[in-house]
Amino acid sequence: MKEEIIIAGFGGQGVLSMGKILAYAALMDNLEVTWMPSYGPEQRGGTANVTVILSDSPISSPILDSYDTAVILNQQSLDKFEACIKPGGTLIYDSYGIHRAPTRTDITVHRIDAMEATFEMESAKTYNMVVLGALLKIKPLVPMESVIKGLKKTLPERHHHLIPMNEAAIIRGMQLTE
């Protein structure tokens, strides 16, 4: 098993931490994992992306030119990464703010309305967890209990009371797609 994922969007959308929670969940599942972020001042306000690779064997390159799955949260990232999805791969994108929809026909495209759902939930900070829920529904890479364990690992102890809220957001995300 090997899954090569890019998650890309605006800085502040929680792209890096979503990748981190996914990576931790995979670690809890005894998988090999790499998490390679774009870093630096561009994280603030500009575009941010993270490459997450999950595998049951050692991982060579943490940097990739093509991906099994792309999770895309803004137009710039869609423009940049649509062409980099492997034929037969998966594109998941949030429709919010997208004015040029994807055009590839050799991949599976899932449109999710995660931003809308987050607005309804009135908890903007859990946006990335809604997206993660959608990803895990479409690609059941790791079980929910590993994700909760991953959340516990990434969140400092004083924020552990937020875990139920994050779990609810993940479940909401799972409902966004059938």
């Binding site: 790499t34 390679m36 972020p37 991982i59």
Partner: peptide, 9 residues
């Protein structure tokens, strides 16, 4: 910067 910034097991 790559191996400094990336996360792995």
């Amino acid at each position: 910067g790559m191996v400094g910034q990336m996360m792995e097991k």
